[in-house]
Amino acid sequence: MQLVFDNLPFLLKGAGFTLLLTIVSMFFGLIIGLVVAIARLKGNRPIRWLARVYVSIIRGTPLLVQIVIIYYGVVDYGITLGSLTAAYIALSVNAGAYLSETFRGAILSVPKGQLEAAYTTGMTPWQAMRRVVLPQAMRIAIPPMGNTFIGMLKETSLVSVITVSELLRQAQLLIAQYYQYMPFYLAIGVMYWIMSTALSFILERFERRLAKAY
């Protein structure tokens, strides 16, 4: 136990990286997800096909494999990515695929009459999407988005394999130094748990505020 407290700053630094990775990847994942969802719904045939293949590949392969491919695989093509950059890319691309499915479902669940009403006032398809459909779809997408967010927090642990010094990696480094497993693994377990609980608390409040709006 004493060991954990002595090395707490070191672990907290890892936790900070975990949070940073989660938030940044979620941010880019949201953008990718939204673009891909709209591409799948409104794009022409090749664009729709491309978006489908992307979602299918990402959802059909383990995140760990995606991370390793992005970090080690592209070196063969002369691109060297820093481990942190590779982690951001892999996590964003992964989250984007899952979020695009969330958004697609949410957009489809907005009643057709909403689009018709927007069209009859003279809006273009893009204006109707932006002003009428998306605001309603976002509200529907919030709970599943929250799940992805919390899932992402835990999945960041996978980028420890490409030496990003997030929480799990920091613990492994300490274990290698002290040859003590349980205290460190238990400590980071507790830290992950605290972070996810805090995150779901924040998301819940956000959801409640949005629900009150109308």
Binding site: P111, Q114, E116, A117, Y119, T121, G122, Q136, R139, Y214
Partner: peptide
């Protein structure tokens, strides 16, 4: 069609107001 929509209004059975 776009031009026609700009010059005509439509009221629906289900109102279709924007709930947000």
């Amino acid at each position: 069609t776009r031009e026609i929509r700009r010059q005509s209004g439509m009221v629906f059975q289900q109102f279709n107001l924007y709930p947000h």
